[in-house]
Design a protein around this nucleic acid. Structure first.
Lengths: 339, 339
DNA sequence: CTGTTAGCGCTTTCAG
DNA sequence: CTGAAAGCGCTAACAG
């Protein structure tokens, strides 16, 4: 036998009052007698009443829910952004639902549609590496649904955006390597479909140029993932060069960890013979021997800022004539893997 | 100027037909002429129509959404479980919303309530370490909302559950240490409010007993977190004992990584002088030097199984007289940190 | 093939 | 202080 969940009408009937009275009691409406209010609350608790937000939201045209779409939740990077969003949004009484695109455009598009159908009040999106068409995002804009893009850029679409200044972070890292005496600096680059990876590569080249170090194409290897195994092959390739590098700047800490593994296996000393600098400040990075130098990014802050901008859009009239594009500053953290 | 999102009535009016006709066109209903259908679909696309699931779900009393509540999403352990759930549930056309309790009973309870109000079709919950009262879960059961508990047990509440046989995994690990010649085996235990941590500690004791090794209380230290920093202090304490251990079995890989860091810092050789075995098979673990021995858990499979059981509950009559409690088997992975 | 009607659960006027 | 009625957007009978 299935017990049905109690509705407002159920308790109204049982108490012999009207649904509106029950609603008033439940919502602390002033126009209600102490007595009926008490009776309603009591029965509601007894029957384990839970308001049906589907009905409420349908009525209010507002769900107090925002949709967050990230390429993956596994990485420390994105989960830390998510924590920032969470913390900002909670005091507003709004919930967050998370979607994982797995770096796939199709999945991303499908999540956007589902979330839009669920009627989230706004979106926070970090696009997948595959995303080259922005029809799904433009459809949000057309429908006047607030949207903030973070971390990864979608060039050509004008909307609020929050980034980390990747260029700056990468430049700091490479310049540090140069100043610590490295002459043959390699870069394990990320997928060039990502704005973040492009910025880091550009900073790498610019830093070399600034210090009059000629660019050597052999020293740039691309890899398409972010976990240690994606650092293995590229590093082997670099080590097998006639004149192997004396420093490697990697797209992120995961890849750096793979790189260090290969280098130590080859009996090469870090940082005496090769310096390594990663990116992201993964929590594991401190615990390697040597501990990994890296570029810390204000991920939590990025989440907060993006969420703050979104909440403002939701709560005020969504005037797209003044758009905010913010950049937060990263910080080089020098540890044991560089001189 | 705000453009309103198009509703079925909007396109009905614009086309001079009735809402039901539009609904039929949009839902591939057989009783509709090719012509009107085409016209409707065209206009719908033009106006960027997105069905309002709030309305639909209210009507259908079903949201095709399940709620997943985990202590934290950051850890590889839970995100891998989540991937398993995701993959199982997707072919059913159901979505998943994730809640993070941050190991807090209050947060967990509040998420349960929100999700219930949103009218998710069912719950998948791994309780927080703080959760000792189960009123929020019992209220779900009373309201006949399907619920499957996974990974961490709630003793005393009768409902479908899916676990990993932690006892078995821990026993394998400790027995292996014994058989490889270790005599003074320590255990860095987890918070004893967690069923999983209790099982591992019990297995540790039982394995010692089986091999007639006397239990030494000094060799068991408790820690309350899962990241490397929680391994630091406990390990220092163990190393400072008059007769320090020759092996440490830790509650998880994170703590093991902290332990290895301290041990290497002290100039002690792993595994020659101290063997280490962790738990969870974190993806980073392979890349340490030495690589970390660990107990692999079928996390993805656990997610799948829990989700499969839940989907069955949702789609059939939720008969709580026959409850399933399943246990999956873990596997010891021996790498460089043990002999 | 198409339109009309009712209703999912809730709040909010507007009357009493 | 309380009730009646309308309506959020949608679908599913029931008529035509």
């Amino acid at each position: 036998m299935k017990k049905k969940r109690a509705t407002i009408t159920d308790i109204a009937e049982e108490l012999g009052v009207s649904p509106s009275t029950v609603s008033r009691a439940l919502n602390d409406h002033p126009a209600i007698s102490k007595k009926t209010k008490k009776a309603v609350l009591k029965l509601a608790r007894q029957r384990n009443y839970q308001p049906n937000l589907l009905a409420l939201n349908l009525l209010k045209k507002r769900t107090n829910t925002i949709g967050v779409i990230v390429p993956e939740i596994t990485s420390h990077f994105f989960s830390s952004v998510i924590n920032g969003i969470q913390d900002l949004v909670k005091p507003f009484g709004v919930n967050m639902i998370i979607g994982q695109s797995n770096e796939s455009y199709e999945e991303e598009k499908s999540i956007v549609q589902t979330f839009a159908s669920i009627r989230v009040d706004g979106f926070l999106i970090s696009p997948s590496s595959e995303t080259k068409k922005y029809d799904h995002l433009e459809s949000l804009i057309q429908n006047n649904i607030p949207l903030v893009i973070f971390d990864r850029d979608c060039e050509g679409i004008d909307i609020d955006k929050v980034f980390v200044d990747e260029y700056n972070g990468a430049f700091q890292a490479v310049e540090y390597l140069i100043q610590s005496g490295c002459k043959r600096i390699a870069h394990i680059a990320g997928s060039q479909t990502l704005s973040t990876a492009r910025h880091r590569l550009r900073a790498y080249k610019d830093a070399l140029e600034k210090h009059s170090i000629p660019f050597n194409a052999d020293y740039v290897v691309q890899t398409d993932g972010f976990s240690p195994e994606y650092g293995i092959e590229p590093t082997r390739r670099l080590l097998s060069l006639q004149t192997p590098p004396d420093a490697i700047f990697t797209i992120n800490d995961g890849v750096a960890i793979g790189a260090m593994y290969v280098i130590k296996d080859a009996g090469i000393k870090i940082p005496e013979e090769i310096s390594i600098i990663g990116f992201d400040d993964d929590p594991h990075s401190t615990y390697f021997k040597p501990s990994l130098s890296t570029v810390w990014q204000p991920t939590y802050e990025m989440g907060m800022l993006a969420a703050r901008i979104l909440m403002k859009r939701i709560n005020t009239n969504n005037d797209l004539s003044k758009i905010r594009v913010e950049s937060l500053f990263p910080e080089l953290i020098v540890r044991g893997s560089s001189m």
